[in-house]
C-alpha cells in the first residue's frame, strides 16, 4: 500500500469509517451464529478495492472471480456452497440487493500459483470480472517452491489482470498451529505482503485473522473430530466470507445494509 493516499481516498475513508462503525451491528443477524469479530486495525482506512466498492454502491452488475486451493473451494466444510466465496456472494447480495453480484469460484484443490496464473487468460479474462481475489502461497509453502519463483509468478499474474483493467486483491494462507514445524509459511506470507506493497494491491490477511479468531477463542481451530471439524470449517468459511464482504465493500458506505438503523447526526 502506498503511504499517502490521494485526497478523495481520505474523504471516502472518513465517511466509511463513520458509517461502518454505526452499521456493523445488524449484520450479525445474517448467519445462524454471530459473525466473527475482526480485530481492531484489521480494516485500514482506505477502500481496498475502490472501483468495486463504487460499483456495489451504484448497484451495477459485478463479476468477482476467486482463485485458490482447497480452502477456497470449501472442501473441508463439505462443498462449494459452504466456501468463503459462496458466503461472500450471499453477504454482498444481502447488503447490496440492487447490485447484481456474481462470484465465480475458480478455486481448485492443490492449485499452485503457476497453475492459477496459467488460467488467467483462458478462463478469467473472458468472464470480464471487476475484481479478482487470488488466494495463494499455500501449495508453494507445502511443496517448498522457491520464494523468488513464487513472487515472480504472482507478479506476472497481477500485471496481466491489471492490464485488463481488473482490480486485484490477494489472500494469504490459512493459519495452522500444527503445520508450522513441517511447513514454513513465513517466507511465503512475507512474499505476499511484498507483492501487495510493491503493486499497491490489498491483502486480505487470512492468516492473521484466523490466528486472531483462534487465540481469542472465537473458533477452536484444533477441533479434530470429523463432524465437529466439518461444522467448524463451515463456520470459518462463513466468517471469512463476511469479513471479505466488509473488505470488498469498504468505501461503498453510501448504501446501508437492509434493516440498518439510519444513524442520527
Amino acid at each position: 500500500m502506498k503511504v499517502a493516499p490521494s485526497a478523495p481516498h481520505y474523504a471516502i475513508a472518513l465517511i466509511v469509517a463513520a458509517t461502518l462503525t454505526l452499521s456493523s451491528a445488524p449484520r450479525a443477524a445474517v448467519g445462524l451464529e454471530p459473525a466473527c469479530p475482526t480485530p481492531e486495525g484489521f480494516a485500514g482506512f482506505e477502500a481496498p478495492v475502490p472501483k468495486t466498492a463504487k460499483a456495489l454502491a451504484a448497484g451495477s452488475e459485478i463479476v468477482i472471480v476467486t482463485l485458490g486451493g482447497a480452502s477456497s473451494l470449501g472442501s473441508a466444510a463439505g462443498g462449494p456452497s459452504l466456501s468463503w466465496p459462496s458466503r461472500l456472494a450471499s453477504a454482498l447480495a444481502a447488503r447490496f440487493p440492487a447490485a447484481r453480484v456474481k462470484v465465480v469460484n475458480l478455486a481448485m484443490p492443490r492449485q499452485t500459483a503457476r497453475e492459477a496464473a496459467d488460467r488467467l487468460a483462458r478462463e478469467v479474462l473472458p468472464l470480464k470480472p471487476m475484481l479478482v481475489i487470488w488466494e495463494t502461497g499455500t501449495m508453494e509453502a507445502v511443496r517448498g517452491t522457491g520464494v523468488d519463483d513464487f513472487r515472480d509468478t504472482v507478479q506476472a499474474g497481477i500485471d496481466e489482470l491489471r492490464a485488463a483493467g481488473i482490480e486485484v486483491a490477494l489472500m494469504n494462507a490459512q493459519f495452522s498451529r500444527d503445520a508450522d514445524p513441517m511447513i514454513h509459511f513465513a517466507p511465503y506470507l512475507a512474499a505476499v505482503r511484498e507483492l501487495a506493497d510493491a503493486n499497491d494491491v490489498p491483502v486480505f490477511h487470512r492468516y492473521g485473522l484466523m490466528r486472531h479468531w483462534d487465540e481469542s477463542g472465537v473458533l477452536d481451530l484444533r477441533t479434530r473430530e470429523s463432524e465437529k471439524r466439518r461444522r467448524l470449517a463451515a463456520r470459518l468459511y462463513d466468517c471469512l466470507g463476511h469479513a471479505m464482504a466488509d473488505f470488498v465493500a469498504r468505501g461503498a458506505g453510501a448504501v446501508k445494509p437492509p434493516g440498518a438503523v439510519e444513524p442520527r447526526p
Binding site: 492443490r110 507445502v142 513441517m182
Partner: peptide, 23 residues
C-alpha cells in the same frame, strides 16, 4: 519424529487436503 507427531494431527485438520500434497 516431529512429522510422526504432526501427520496425524494435520490429516484431521483444515489443512488435510493441502498437507497431503507434500510428496
Amino acid at each position: 519424529a516431529m512429522m510422526a507427531y504432526t501427520v496425524e494431527v494435520l490429516n484431521s485438520s483444515l489443512y488435510a487436503e493441502e498437507s497431503q500434497a507434500a510428496d
